[in-house]
């Protein structure tokens, strides 16, 4: 088995900013363990196979450094849950990073 425990799932939920309930933890831990166990089959593949991250057949796709119209501020802020003084208003932020 992949050995994903309930605590592991709780940790993943914290990392992913999901305030999951205890009932969900019970459900997810079994499911995620089973899924990870299944997909772990890729472990059979030899290490010397090179990875493929993308299937785009081109390189050096660049944009010219020329200014384009921006969004109007009122349009951008109209979809915000809260706005103040031309800015997005958010709850207090803890800590300076992470």
């Amino acid at each position: 088995m992949s050995d994903i425990t309930r605590d592991d799932v709780a940790h993943l939920a914290r990392l992913a900013r999901l305030a999951v309930s205890d009932a969900e933890l019970d459900m997810f831990s079994g499911q995620i363990d089973a899924i990870v166990d299944t997909v772990s089959r890729v472990g059979e593949i030899p290490d010397d196979v090179p990875p493929t991250a993308q299937v785009v057949p081109q390189t050096n796709v660049l944009r010219p450094d020329t200014e384009e119209p921006c969004l109007r501020r009122d349009v951008a802020l109209a979809e915000a849950p809260a706005a103040e003084e031309g800015r997005f208003r958010v709850p207090r932020i803890l800590g300076e990073e992470l």
Partner: peptide
């Protein structure tokens, strides 16, 4: 993106 890279503009005016 093509938004201006400018220091000191009015808040949220160089966004897309």
């Amino acid at each position: 993106c093509g938004c201006a890279n400018a220091f000191g503009a009015e808040p949220n005016t160089n966004i897309c």
